[in-house]
Design a protein around this nucleic acid. Structure first.
Lengths: 262, 262
DNA sequence: CAGTGGTCTAGACCACTCT
DNA sequence: GAGTGGTCTAGACCACTGC
């Protein structure tokens, strides 16, 4: 089959790396397990293995790539520590999903000052199409003026509006995004992105500042003008470190805090 | 030597674990490499290996503990990923130190909105001894009324006062702490704690909120009353997850932000 | 060159899950 | 019991550092 041919070739190229360089090593050298990791990443990104599904066993992958099980294992170890894969002893290795509570915990850092943890209620305010501003174009690596979908929504805890999110997405990647799609969904947005648009958020960077509530924000969050809020700017990345979301969150912190571990 | 005796005994006990339990496995089971990791932690905590110094080679440790090099390796891997040890190919494995810039980056998350990264100037305001309030006693796991050292200081960037820190430390652990000791030191506090008091900060948890500057803060940071500030409450832990510092930081965020990666 | 960490292998056995 | 990930070993060789 074509598959066999392609992996034989890949493997040949991998092994060559060591043998054919006259100089000790060029800057292009990478160990076998990293090359395996790259192959696994390709399979993940291409959708060959769907979120939530099991990937082939370590033994099978070792045979497929013509390396030892330990080498495959080390590649999976890294992907697992990056939360792209999840190992389950006795069952197999699975593609990580945003529908797992563990993952949601990772991307929503707001915790209640006291009392039990609770799921937020999500209410969509609006969903518009605009042309990318210079700022959005810069962080999302687009051209100014390209089409962007902007969602605004409110997260409430125990009925208290607590977070105002403004979420900017490249329209070309999130084709068919609409208020209906978001409203009809009762879960984390990243879960929707993954299942409906095939966009998996891998990593995000946040910049946190404090600022005073302006008129619009004060009204939407039902607080008085000037109340100090956390302003959380997030850029989220998918495979290959491609930025695909810019999100500005305004958090009330009378009864919640942003949790972080150093 | 006594050393030989003790490690032989330890090793015996480790291997026993597998053999002598009739039931498949009690909840107390832990794999060999974790037991090795614990032994390494003991050596670190006891000061047998000083910060910045090299620990014995993997081969030597394998002989000492009577296990294979790969098992020692896995133990070191975990300690290394927890930033307790640092591997340097060809040189050895070293005890991590707070004097390395990399480590300071980890515990000071404030970044400039624009321009080059810069070292802050540190100015001590005062250093007092008080009795632990209920709140401090709770987070530092002390009794109410026990002696606490409280430092207040300001961090300035480019001459602009930006952070007001109030740092509470158990007096019994930080014996001999004084204004002179802190003032005479031009570096990260954790570096001072490590070298002068033998207290190594391993991990910290932060809770971030937004609040308005009160009168005292406004004066010390030279801002107007009510300016929104980040309030960063940190509890820092040393070996064995013992809390040894409570720190409340108030951050101006006109020209800086708190950086975080998810 | 010797010594250290880094990679890779092959094989054994353990622990867990499901059938 | 079969299949999966988890641990452990012994040994080979590579890559980097410093003498």
């Amino acid at each position: 089959m074509m598959d066999s041919t392609s992996w034989l070739w890949s493997n040949f190229r991998m092994r060559r790396q060591r043998a054919d360089s006259a100089k000790p090593h060029a800057a292009t050298f990478s160990p076998l397990y990293r090359q395996i990791k790259t192959l696994l990443l390709i399979s993940l990104e291409s959708g060959e293995w769907q979120p939530g599904a099991a990937i082939p066993s370590e033994f099978e992958l070792a045979v497929r790539y013509g390396v030892s099980q330990g080498t495959v294992r080390k590649a999976i170890d890294e992907l697992s520590s990056e939360s792209l894969l999840v190992r389950r002893q006795g069952k197999g290795t699975f593609v990580a999903t945003h529908s797992e509570p563990r993952t949601q915990f990772r991307f929503l850092r707001l915790r209640a000052t006291e009392g039990e943890e609770q799921q937020p209620e999500r209410r969509l305010i609006d969903c518009r199409r605009i042309r990318a501003t210079a700022e959005i174009a810069r962080v999302l690596d687009m051209k100014s003026g390209e089409s962007v979908v902007v969602l605004r929504r409110i997260l409430s805890f125990r009925g208290i509006p607590t977070v105002l999110d403004e979420i900017s997405l490249p329209a070309t990647i999130f084709k068919g995004m609409s208020a209906a799609k978001v409203s009809g969904y009762n879960g984390a947005l990243y879960d929707l992105f993954e299942s409906e648009f095939g966009v998996r958020m891998i990593r995000a960077e946040e910049r946190i500042r404090a600022l005073a509530a302006d008129a619009t924000t004060a009204e939407l969050l039902n607080v008085e003008l000037g109340l100090p809020l956390l302003c959380v700017d997030r850029v989220a990345y998918t495979y290959g470190d491609r930025a695909v979301e810019f999100r500005r969150g305004l958090y009330r912190t009378e009864h919640h805090y942003y949790a972080n571990t150093l």
